[in-house]
Simulated assay, not measured.
Amino acid sequence: MMTQPRIAIVVSHPIQHFCPQYASLAAISDWQVKVFFASSMGKKAYHDKDFGHSLAWSSLSLDAFEHQFLSEEALPSSKNLDAPKLDHALMAYDPDVVVIYGYWQKVQRRALAWAVGAGKRIYYISDSELAHGAGGPKSWLKTLLLRRRLAPVSRFLTVGTWNEDFYRRVGAPVSKMTRMNFPIDIAAFDHALADSKELREKTRRELGFKPDDFVIATVGKLVPRKRQADLIRAVLIAKPEARLRALVIGSGPDEPALQTLVNGDERVRMCGFISPEALPALYLASDAYAHLSSYEPHSLAISEAIYCGLPVVLSDRCGSYGPSDDVEPGANGFVFPVGDVESLAGMLSRLAQSPSLRQRFAKRSLAYALDAQHQAHGEFLRIALTADGLWNT
C-alpha cells in the first residue's frame, strides 16, 4: 500500500473562493495537504483600490486545513510579493508535490526553483488563455519564454477550454493536463439553494422586481474593462415586452458614470459592494447572468452563476466558454461580440421570451456546475496523483 502523498500548496494569501477548496482537500484521507501563505492579506483587512474600501473575508475556513503564514503582514499581492522563509518551510514539510499559481510573483518563482532543486513534482495553476486575442512578435517571444519556463512542470491543473488551448500553444502535452476547474464556496451556495424558491421570492420583493420581470445579474468591480454599461444600455434599448431588468452588483471607480447612465431608471438596480455571503441570494433572484468584459481570463462569477442554474450571456473576450467549459454556446448560453449592445439585447430578449429555452439552458448550467465543482473539490487531485503514480485505489 502506498503512503499518503504530501501536497504543498504555495499561494499569495487567503483567497475567498480557494480556501473552501483547501478545506475539501484536507477532509480527504487519501493525501496530506498543507497551504503556505506568503501574506495574511484577506485574513487581515486590506484596502482594495478598485472596490474603494477595506476588505477582510469572513468565510476562509482556515481552521479546516493545515496552513502556515510565512508573513503575518497583509502584504499586497503584487509581482514583488516574496517569502524568503518558504525554502526552509518546504524543506521541513518535504512534500511530494508542490502546487504553484503561475510565475508572475516572486514567491511562486521561488517555489518553482525550490521544487526543481529538490526534485519534487510541480503542479501548475493559472488562468492564462487566448480569448482576448494574441498575436505579433511580442506574443511569439512570450510563447518561447514560457516554453522554457514551464518545462519543469509535471502537471497542469487546467480551468477551462481556453486555458488548455493556451497550454498546448506553449508546448504542454495533453497527457500532462488534468482539468481542475476553479472552485467556488459550495457550502455557502448549497445552504442558499436548499431554500432557493423562498429566498428568490424574498430577494426579488426586497429589490422591487415583479414576478414577470426578466432579471439579468452581472457581478464584478465597476472598472472600465468589465463594461457593465453594455448591460445597462442593452436593457434600456430592449423592447418593453421583454421586461428586461439589470442587477449590477459591485462597486468601483465607474460607479458615478454608471449611475448617470441609469439616471434613476427603474429597470436597473445598482447594488454596490455585496459580501460573498450575500451573493447567492442575488443570483437566485435573477433569471440569467451576463458578463461583458473586454478581458476576463476565467470568471468566478460565471462559475457561481451556473451553480445556481442560470443561463449565461458573455462577451467573446471572456475565457469561460467552449465545448467543455462553464458556458457551452447554444447549450447553456450565448456569446456576443464584445461591445455589441444590440446583439446582447437580442440574446437577452430571446431568453426572456422563451421559457423552454431558459429551462433547457438552466438544466445544462446546473449539471455542468455540479460536475465541475466535484472535480474542483477533490476529484482532480485524485486523477492527477494517480496519473503520476503517487496514489492508487
Rank of each mutant, 00 (worst) to 15 (best):
V215R: 05
V215T: 02
V215F: 03
A217K: 01
A217T: 06
P224C: 12
P224W: 11
R225W: 12
R225T: 12
R227D: 01
Q228R: 10
D230N: 15
D230E: 09
L231K: 03
L231G: 04
A234N: 13
V235L: 00
K239R: 13
E241Y: 06
R243D: 03
L244V: 07
R245N: 06
G250I: 01
G252H: 03
P253W: 02
D254Q: 15
E255R: 15
A257R: 14
G264P: 03
D265M: 11
D265Y: 08
E266M: 03
E266A: 12
V268C: 08
V268R: 02
R269N: 10
G272K: 13
F273P: 01
S275D: 11
S275F: 05
P276D: 10
P276N: 13
P276L: 11
E277K: 07
A278H: 05
L279P: 03
P280L: 05
L282H: 05
Y283N: 01
A285C: 06
D287K: 02
Y289L: 08
Y289V: 06
A290R: 02
H291V: 11
L292K: 08
S293T: 02
Y295S: 12
E296Y: 04
P297R: 05
S299L: 13
S299V: 12
L300Q: 03
A301Y: 05
I302T: 00
S303M: 14
A305S: 10
A305K: 00
Y307D: 00
C308N: 06
C308Q: 01
G309Y: 08
G309A: 06
P311R: 01
V312M: 07
V312C: 09
V312P: 10
S315L: 10
D316T: 12
R317H: 09
R317I: 10
G319N: 02
Y321D: 06
Y321N: 01
P323V: 06
P323N: 06
S324R: 15
S324K: 15
S324F: 13
D325L: 08
D326R: 14
P329V: 04
N332D: 14
G333R: 04
G333A: 00
F334T: 00
F336E: 08
P337H: 15
P337S: 15
D340C: 01
S343Q: 14
S343G: 04
G346L: 05
G346R: 10
